[in-house]
């Protein structure tokens, strides 16, 4: 067990959340807009191959925040394009993010069927 990874996960993940919170509190941007921006940032960082080293360093601290979603989309597209040519951008787009999207849809649907909002 690599305990240092846990320390890094805590402070890197915490820092990303803290900076997002400061952005929320000091601008009129709403959280949806901030999350959208973070995803775009993740896509760009992924394009330059800069986000994977952070995941290497901080584990869940970099893999859990939404930036990782943008990074994974870009990486999926890039990797598949390298394998199968330009069409790979379309076929590989959701290669790595399928887990998140699929589970969110399934859990969301099931929750909607079973539960009622509490208000």
């Amino acid at each position: 067990m690599n305990w240092m990874l846990y320390v890094n996960a805590f402070w890197v993940g915490g820092l990303i959340c803290m900076l997002s919170q400061l952005l929320f509190d000091t601008t009129t941007l709403n959280m949806g807009q901030i999350l959208t921006g973070l995803t775009v940032l993740g896509g760009i960082l992924g394009g330059f191959g800069l986000y994977d080293p952070l995941i290497e360093f901080a584990g869940g601290g970099a893999a859990m925040p939404i930036i990782s979603f943008g990074n994974s989309l870009a990486k999926g597209a890039i990797t598949e394009a390298e394998r199968t040519g330009i069409i790979g951008i379309l076929t590989g787009m959701f290669e790595l993010t399928s887990t998140g999207i699929t589970s969110a849809i399934v859990f969301g649907f099931l929750a909607a069927v079973i539960f009622k909002p509490k208000g």
Partner: peptide, 11 residues
């Protein structure tokens, strides 16, 4: 809380 969530994720 963000740090904690990521820590749990790493777990």
């Amino acid at each position: 809380s963000g740090g904690l969530v990521c820590l749990i994720g790493q777990g």
